[in-house]
C-alpha cells in the first residue's frame, strides 16, 4: 500500500502523507465554505448590514448570490489542487 519512501531528510511521499495533505486542503476549503454561507449570509449578516448592495445589504447578497459563486470556485480549486497532489504523491490513475 505505502509507496516507497525516499531517504531521510527528503519529503515524505507516502500514502499517509498524501492523505494528510488532502485533509489539510479539505479543511481549508470547508472553512471558506462555512464562512461565506453560515458566516456572511446568516450569523454575521447584522455586522455586514452597513455595507449597501443594490437596495439591500451585503449579507443578503451573500445569501442569494455570493455564496453560490464562491462554492463553484472552491470545487474547481480543490479539483485542481488534488490533481497536482495526485501527481506529486504518485497516486494518480494516469
Amino acid at each position: 500500500m505505502a509507496s516507497p519512501q525516499t531517504g531521510a531528510g527528503s519529503e515524505d511521499l507516502s500514502a499517509h502523507a498524501y492523505w494528510k495533505a488532502n485533509i489539510r486542503l479539505v479543511t481549508g476549503c470547508l472553512i471558506v465554505w462555512a464562512f461565506v454561507s453560515f458566516g456572511c449570509a446568516i450569523l454575521f449578516r447584522p455586522l455586514l448590514s452597513g455595507i449597501p448592495v443594490g437596495g439591500t445589504d451585503l449579507g443578503f447578497w451573500f445569501a442569494q448570490q455570493g455564496s453560490i459563486l464562491v462554492f463553484i470556485v472552491l470545487i474547481f480549486f480543490y479539483a485542481w489542487r488534488m490533481t497536482k497532489l495526485d501527481k506529486k504523491y504518485n497516486v494518480s490513475e494516469d
Binding site: V26, L30, W33, A41, A63, S67, I68, F71, I75
Partner: peptide, 18 residues
C-alpha cells in the same frame, strides 16, 4: 428562504470534497 439557494448548492462542495 435563501436557505434553499445556499443549501442546494453548498452541498456540492461537500460532495466534491468528502
Amino acid at each position: 428562504n435563501s436557505a434553499y439557494l445556499m443549501g442546494w448548492t453548498g452541498g456540492y462542495v461537500l460532495l466534491a470534497l468528502l
